[in-house]
Amino acid sequence: MLASIVTGPGTAEVVETPRPHTGPADVLIRMRACGVCGSDGFYIDIGGLPPRQGHTPLGHEPAGEIVEIGADVTGLRVGDHVVINPMAQPSNIIGNGGDSGALADYLLIENAVRGVSLEVIPDHIPWEVAALNEPMAVARHAVNRCHPKPTDKVVIFGAGPIGLGSVLGFKSLGVSHIVVVDLIPARLHKALQIGADAVINSAEDDVIARLIDLHGPGEAMFPGKAGTDIYLDAAGAPAVIDTALAAAKKGATLAVVAVHKKPVPIEFVNVMSNEITILGSIGYPDEIFDVTSDLVENWEIYQLIVSHMIPFSNVAEALSLASTPGAADKVVVTFGDDA
């Protein structure tokens, strides 16, 4: 079979590898779609991850079809459409430094257990939507970390896949008002399409003033704060942290799910005096299949997040596009029936 593998710093190649052998507790998945994550570009830049630097398989946002099933596996059958938990096997994390990746013709799921390592989805769900399950779980965990109440007013910085997924996550929990901030008009339009109540173009508008217009003034030691309860950073820019803390009222929460590649200074007197909660979010300890039912029920809305579908035969183009800032929202690699 063919697989996309990091072969050195700045280089990813499609190479021929042995098709996996299906053991009695395993299932073999024929890949149908795999999303491209920003971390894939990072792995390529640094030449892969230990212990497989120079030979790191790529792809950790998989959806596919079961084509072989071990004799000891229960609750699954050949032909099932499934979404996959790439973190289910700590010794072999799919596409994140393990010995297998989902940007390949086939993917072996060892010790396959429904609801733990993979979950079945209805056949009518488009493959590109199914491939959103993993990043949407990342977004849902960030939302859950904020412990939102229906009465909360929320602002999300960044209208990329995680930011848009967070809109849907907050909406699913009944949050009353959600604002999305971004620099790109097309992304802001998409945020409104999927259910944001308002958007702010930070290249054109005073973000704090607009938040006060939308959410009212907030109680704080000093004036000029917004009534926003939750600030979610899904952009990863230092200006987001500065803006959120400058706007935050007493008791507000700032959550960070975006990756910041450099340290960001914080003025802690403001944090202390207004008792602001700052928290981080990574991965999906419990959410990988919690999000699946909402994805299935509202797949037509989730489908709006996908901006590009590129066949595996052009996977290099997909990886390049996803690594180019502003070039794409969500890139999904698709696989044909002849894999």
Rank of each mutant, 00 (worst) to 15 (best):
F268G: 10
D99Y: 05
T17C: 14
V82E: 02
N111H: 12
P20E: 07
L279M: 13
A33K: 03
L214C: 08
V259M: 04
P311F: 06
I94G: 03
S313W: 08
Y231H: 07
T243I: 04
F157N: 08
S91V: 04
D286V: 14
Y231P: 11
A248D: 00
I29T: 01
R77W: 06
A63S: 12
A33D: 00
F157I: 11
H141E: 02
L183R: 13
G59W: 00
P148W: 06
L173V: 08
M31V: 05
M136Q: 14
A220Q: 08
A209T: 13
L304R: 15
H177P: 05
R140P: 04
A258W: 00
S172N: 06
M136D: 06
G224D: 04
L2R: 15
A247I: 05
D338I: 13
E134A: 07
L295R: 03
H177W: 10
G160A: 09
V175S: 03
G216N: 08
H60L: 03
H141Q: 06
P90W: 02
P86V: 03
K250F: 11
R140E: 10
R77G: 14
A198W: 02
H189M: 13
A63F: 01
A328C: 10
Y231T: 09
K149W: 11
G101E: 00
E65T: 09
G216P: 11
G8Q: 08
L76K: 01
Q193W: 06
D197Q: 03
S307Q: 05
V291L: 02
A139D: 02
I109P: 07
S313K: 13
V257I: 12
E128P: 11
F312S: 05
L2M: 14
S202F: 00
A186W: 11
M31P: 00
V306T: 11
P263Y: 01
E119K: 15
Y302R: 08
A247F: 00
N144S: 14
V271I: 14
L211F: 03
H81Y: 05
T7K: 15
A237R: 15
V15E: 13
A25K: 14
I178T: 10
V83L: 02
T277G: 09
G47P: 01
V154E: 03
